[in-house]
Each structure stands twice: as structure tokens, then as C-alpha cells.
Design a protein around this nucleic acid. Structure first.
Lengths: 137, 137, 137, 137
DNA sequence: TTTT
DNA sequence: TTTT
């Protein structure tokens, strides 16, 4: 089956880098992708898309990119669910980034080695032990 | 900015066709896209991705495709929010399909005229007047 | 059927804008997309991908973008053939751009209105009357 | 940089499987992807897109798929050149498939394990020692 | 609950 | 026949 997403947009806030108990890096980030037209009031709207990236690229992202910067994302859509604070199941649809491209970087010019192949299968091979209370959704 | 999604998966249930007050057709549908690997228990998992399509292609989808059939989707990610029944804002990430391809059809062999160009801007040009209580999320 | 291409790369030369006899604008351009790894000699290689865009976006491209600038392309692959100068048929595979995003612009900050829907069907509805001798391939 | 291609189409002929001198499998194949509209004579046209795939998936492709079958391809565009029989340099643009999905299979129902990550970097890490005279272009 |  |  096919599952492919490509986005270019701006970071809505700084990436949120964490580590699993086994030491893997994960970064959550949200990008604003402007819609290609204006709405009925002449305003440009955006979609705000949640993304995740794992391992070394997660650390690079947190090191070199910050709120407002433009970024490219190549990955796939994933859905997952967790128990919300009110006991109800919460369903999440987000982009699992295999690679990101730093289209601007205030901090440093190190360009992320873009890595088509990496739409990280390892994500799944190890339980994520960040507790749900910490998840940004 | 760029916002592109391509999926191939199977309809998890029959498409849900509705009409806005102004008479536009909208179909909501969910597809299961198998992950390309098995989990730690050797099971194949899937992502369950919500999609929307507008106008004539929505009617064609409802007419020719049903639960279990394989479908291709070309579109873009959109996010929106509505007030949930508990008064809390619910955020939705879904795929706005510009075109769909019927990769199997139990009903009829009419192949959807696949339509790269149609990632429907008109979606936004008119308020959607289906009430939130009817939305399948 | 599905046919989708998304690229981010740099213009290898200035876009080449022409007009058909009926007055439609067409721009041909080539972008270098660096490969995500270095070769056996430690060098970064690139793919050099030929693209075409029609109508107003072709004129915008020629007006605002030039050699070396970074550009995003959303489109589809097309193949065509013509008789080469030696009488042999030449086959061309290129990207028909539906929309482009100006990720840098030396000339002006006018951001191309990115237009998912436009993977230009009109391309085909009218014969292209630029003579083959003028084609950049 | 970003370089992503997704296609669904039909094999125009049986895949052509070969081995490099070092024993790696490579399969070349061409798919016809119908255009989403008919031309001025009411005929449906297609694009004929050359693709390559490496290693085990190349062997699976050759084993399970044949002329006329529908296939999905996820990969990236690559360009390369070689010296043609008339001494002139020939430029090739083709899709390097990272994964393929067998959407039909006359031979066997074994579904290719779809493998987002595999847009094969190894392709480049070893010289291809099939002589140019054998190349299908 | 948002970016330029 | 190539970009940074």
C-alpha cells in the first residue's frame, strides 16, 4: 500500500525534543502550511500539521530549527490513539517524517542530510515509553 | 507552500455521502493503509486515515465503492476544528482528496476519471452547512 | 491512475519563457536536486530534472526566479517524443508543474500563489505550436 | 532537498531482471499511467514512465508481475547519461523505485512487503556493471 | 490553538 | 551537460 506525504511550511513553535527511556530521540513539531487561496474574507488561512521525527534527525531539527523557519517534510501519515485526561480515547493523525529539509536556519547553516530512505520503521520496533501525560496532544 | 498526500488503501466502511444546504455533495470516508512492516508481535498494523471529497467525485465514490475495496487518493492534508459535544474544541487532521482512483469496484467498472487538478479549492469558497452533530468524527 | 511528483531544488539556469502561436506562456526550467548521500568519492551528486509550466505561473517564474534559486515543484511526470535533428525520435520525460513555490527570490518578494489544483490539463487541450527546433531538449 | 514520485499504472511489458557482476538484482520496467483527460480527438492518452528497482524487490517484481498488471510505485526521480551507439551522450530521466505495490498479480497473491524506507541508496554505492549495450533505453 |  |  502507499502512504506518502510531502509538506513545505513554517514551524509554529520550536520543535519539542524528548528521549524515550531507552534513549531514543523523538521530536514533535507543528508546521503551518498556507492554503493556496484566500477565504471569503480575503484572508490567507493555513493548515497546522503535527509531525514527529526520530533519532538523529530529531536532534538535528531541535538544534538547528526554531519557530518561524521554513522546513520541508517527506514522510507518511500515521494514526494512533491514547487515553485522554478525561478517560476518553483520543485519536491522533500526524506525519511521521522520514526526512526533513531545513529551508532556513537562523542558528547554523548545517543542512540536514536529507535521507529519502528513512521513514523510520524503527519507530515501531520499540515501545515509546514517554508517558501519555507528556504527549503534546 | 507544498502540501501533497498520496495514499492507497482499503475503505474501512462505506463512504458517507451528504449534501450541504446549497446542494453540494461531500463524502467522508476512511481508508486503512497497512504499515510496511509487522509489529513486535508479528502482526500487520494499519493507519486509519480520514478523507473528504467534494462534488461529483463524492457522488461517484458513493455509487461505485464500498467497504473493503481498494482505493487510491491524491490530495492534501487539512486541519479544522469544531466544538465537541462536551464543549471542548476538537481538532481534526484529514485528507482533502482532489482525486480518487477506484482500484477495485464490486458494483460497476466505471473508472473514476482521475483528475489531478481538482484538489478542490471550491471546498472553501462556500460555508459547509452540515451541522457538527452530523460529522463523523 | 496516480501520477504525482514533488521536488525541491535549485534552478540550474534561468527559466526559458516562450509563447505558443495562440499566445499561451510556457516556461521550461531545469532544477538540480541534490542526492541525499555522497558517492564513492565523497562527492555530493545531483539529479537534473527538466520541468515545464504553463500560463500565468510560467510568466511569474520567469519574472521572479533565476539561476541558483531554490524552488519547490508540485506536478506530474509526462512523457513525449519529437523528431530529433538527426531524424531519430527523441523521448523526453519531464515534470509538468502544476504549481511552483519560490523558496528564494533575488528579484522580488512576490510569493507565487501556490495552486495545488493546477496541474494544467489545458496543456493538452491546445496544440503547442513552438517548432521542435526551438525546444530545449 | 525533496524528490518524491508516486505512480499507479500498468506494466507495458514484463519487467526486465538482470544482475550486476557483483550479483545485485536490478529490474527495469515501464508503466503506462493514463492521463486524467482525453485529448482533442476524444482519446485517452498515457505517459510511459521508465522505472528501476534493486535487490530483492527487483526479484519479487519479476516473479509476480507481468505485462498489463497494475502496480503502485513510490520512489524518486533520477537522471543519468550514457554514450549512445552513435557516440552521442544520451540523457535518461527515470524513477528509482523504493517500493512497489502489486495491485494485481496473475501469478501469485504474494503481496510485496511495501517498504517506504527503501528508496535504495545502495544503488549508488556500487558501480553498475551491466554494459550500456544492454540497457533498455 | 498556532507560522510568514 | 547543469545548482548551492
Amino acid at each position: 500500500m502507499l502512504n506518502r506525504v510531502v509538506l513545505v511550511g513554517r514551524l509554529v513553535k520550536d520543535p519539542d525534543l524528548r528521549y524515550t527511556q531507552s534513549g531514543k530521540a523523538v521530536a514533535n513539531f507543528t508546521i503551518a502550511v498556507n492554503k493556496p487561496f484566500t477565504n471569503q474574507n480575503g484572508e490567507r488561512e493555513a493548515d497546522f500539521i503535527n509531525c514527529v521525527i526520530w533519532n538523529k534527525p530529531a536532534e538535528n531539527l531541535a538544534n538547528y530549527m526554531s519557530k518561524g523557519q521554513m522546513i520541508g517534510v517527506d514522510g507518511n501519515l500515521q494514526t494512533r490513539s491514547y487515553d485522554g485526561q478525561d478517560g476518553k480515547r483520543v485519536f491522533v493523525t500526524e506525519v511521521l517524517a522520514g526526512s526533513v529539509q531545513f529551508l532556513e536556519s537562523k542558528k547554523n547553516n548545517k543542512q540536514e542530510a536529507v535521507d529519502y530512505p528513512s521513514t523510520a520503521p524503527q519507530t515501531q520496533s520499540e515501545p515509546i515509553d514517554i508517558s501519555d501525560d507528556d504527549l503534546p496532544f
